[in-house]
Design a protein around this nucleic acid. Sequence first.
DNA 1: TCAATTTATCGTAATATTACGATATACTAA
DNA 2: TTAGTATATCGTAATATTACGATAAATTGA
Lengths: 106, 106
Amino acid sequence: MGRSKTESFGVRQNRLAEIAKALAHPARVAIVEFLAKQDACVCGDIVDVLPLSQATVSQHLAELKRVGLIKGEIDGPRVCYCIDRKAWNEARTLFSQFLTDVKQCC
Amino acid sequence: MGRSKTESFGVRQNRLAEIAKALAHPARVAIVEFLAKQDACVCGDIVDVLPLSQATVSQHLAELKRVGLIKGEIDGPRVCYCIDRKAWNEARTLFSQFLTDVKQCC
DNA sequence: TCAATTTATCGTAATATTACGATATACTAA
DNA sequence: TTAGTATATCGTAATATTACGATAAATTGA
């Protein structure tokens, strides 16, 4: 097949997996960390920092945006990306619960 | 291309992304949670619980094992899977730092 | 030994991801 | 208006993921 059977799992499990997938690439981890490092939301400097083409970075940004972890605000000719506080809190809650609840079993 | 440029990123960023990828499928989230729910490490009952074929479940288990989050111990004709405490602690540390350090930027 | 059971692996198909050049789009500044 | 800059999107290629039936491998119990 090749298509995830998402309908067979819970909303929370799917959301957790979706966020995990958004963070499942080192470039996207790097992007998020870069955005956080800047106090203000700097934008396309990301392309300068990452060893990837502009098109690829844009694609990674779109994926992070699709999941809601970041949001982009048009600011003149450029786009200003920043962490979406609400979604990030959601992610923190989901992951910290998940990672704490799952204890050792043997 | 289609192959991640992992060599361009830090060890921590790659590890974080690797663990995230292992959790980037609801079936694998479900597997981990199921393993944790059982106090002892039950094994192929996972196949009964999940709406996936035995082959697919085995594949998902292999992925979790590859990353180190779970380990399987052969127990007679069956294999007994359980959370790997050490790797899980590593994941918890990585993610909780990552999710806490990244604050809002705007 | 032999059938039954459990799990892994192989083969394969459908689809998704990653990457980038080329191009389109949108805005600013001259 | 027009050139320049910034970003998104399109097209495409290489590779990875997801899924499952079929089969192999390993072990137990009869």
